[in-house]
Structure formats: C-alpha cells, structure tokens
Amino acid sequence: MQNKLLCRILLTVLTVSTQLATSLYAQEHNSGRYAIDLSITPLSSVNIGPLKSLDGSAGHISKNYISGLVRGTYQHTERWSFSVGLGYSSQKVTTTYPVINPNIEQKKYFTSLHIWEVPLEARIGFLKYFYASAGPMIHLQQNSNSHVDKQNGLGFNISVGTKIPLSQSIAVSVSPHYKMYSLIPFQSGNHYDRIQTVGVQIGISYSFGKH
C-alpha cells in the first residue's frame, strides 16, 4: 500500500514538473539546447540525526558515503536551465546507543543505507563559467534499517559550481553542494532522523540541440 502511494506521488510530481517546464520553454523561441550529465560525489561530510540534539538518543556516524547521478537538462535561456535526474547513494552507518547501566557493554550496530533520489533543479548561470542551482527531490530508501528512520520523503539540494567547456559538446563541472533528506518525511514522528550532506560533486556533460 505504501509503495503504491509513493509511486503515485512520484508520478504526480514528475507530471506537474514536466507540464510546468513545457509551458516555460514554449515562451522562449531561442530555447532548444539539451544536455546529459553524469556526476559522482567522492568527497562529503554526512550528519545523521534529528535537527535538534537530544540527550540519551542514539548516535549515528556515517562512513564511505558515495553517490552518483544522471541528469537531463534543458537550456531555457542563456542563463536559465531546468533539469530532472536519477541518483543513488550508499553509505555505512555505525549506530551507538547510550550507556544506561555501566555494567552492560555499550551497544553498537553496523548497518548500511542505500537511497534512490529524483532531483528537480533550476539553475542560473553567472559570470562566464559559474552557476547556482537549487530544487526539491523525492528520495526512497532501498533497504531496511531498524536503527535509522526510513529515509523516504521530500528533500532539497542547493549548490554552486563551475562548468568548463572542453569542446562545443563536452564540458566538465565541479560543484560544492548541501543536501538534506526527509525535510518532509513520508513517515512522520518526533525527532525524525534526517541525513544532511555537504559534498563536492564532479561531473561531465554532453550537450546537443540548437546553438
């Protein structure tokens, strides 16, 4: 039942965003440039937990976080572009529970998180090779994890970066970004665990269409 609901929400968001983008693009006769981007995030710092620190709650430490993303972009004007993507991230999580009885060994659990995400972004270019982007994303956790709240919900991403062309069609990019999962979780609860990442994304893109 829950999976059907999540699929319906995903399809609704994608349909509305596509219709909105089509309406915007139709107003610009100079539009028509497309790009396919492939990127990874090899460098990052991850925080897992509620937005407010709580005494006596479990602590989560993330290691070996890495993510990849494929994105389709439409160049609306010289400065503005819009994109939709499909991303995947993986990380190892160590969960440590507080010591209640000093005679009992502190409990630690080693688990993993695998998350799929669909980001929708608007990007504005400035100067010659720089840009800023932001937008919401739908994300769904692939595996079960009884120690971290399920990361199914709506999050957001914001970034700044530089994109340097190597040829008329190929370009490379470097983009520091901040990302929060479960800004609006599909499963609500008090002190909900949220993943926050600060990272550096590197990518390559191929452009085609009108010039």
Rank of each mutant, 00 (worst) to 15 (best):
I48K: 07
K108W: 01
F82L: 14
P102C: 08
P102R: 00
I100V: 14
G125V: 00
Y131G: 01
Q91E: 13
E105A: 12
L120G: 06
K92G: 15
Q142V: 03
D149T: 07
F130W: 10
H60G: 00
S45M: 13
K92S: 14
L113V: 04
I158M: 06
K108T: 13
I138K: 01
K107Y: 11
Y131R: 02
I115H: 02
Y129W: 10
N152T: 03
G59P: 12
T94M: 12
S39G: 09
S81F: 01
S45T: 11
H147L: 04
L140S: 13
F110P: 08
L43Y: 15
S67A: 13
V46H: 07
R123I: 10
S62F: 03
T95E: 04
S90F: 14
F126K: 12
V160H: 03
G68E: 00
P136M: 09
K63W: 07
V160R: 00
S90G: 15
I115D: 06
I61A: 13
Y129M: 11
K92P: 06
K52V: 15
S45Q: 13
Q106S: 12
T96L: 08
I158D: 10
V84N: 09
F82T: 06
T77C: 03
I158C: 04
S39N: 09
A122Y: 08
G153F: 00
V160Q: 02
G155V: 00
A58F: 06
K108Y: 03
Y65G: 04
I40Q: 08
S44P: 04
G125Y: 02
G68C: 05
A132H: 02
L86F: 04
V93I: 02
H147V: 08
A134S: 04
I48A: 06
L154F: 00
H114W: 12
G49A: 05
T94F: 04
K107S: 11
N143C: 01
K63I: 05
K52M: 11
Y88P: 00
Y97P: 04
S159H: 00
G56Q: 06
I104V: 09
H114C: 10
T77Q: 05
H139Q: 05
E117G: 09
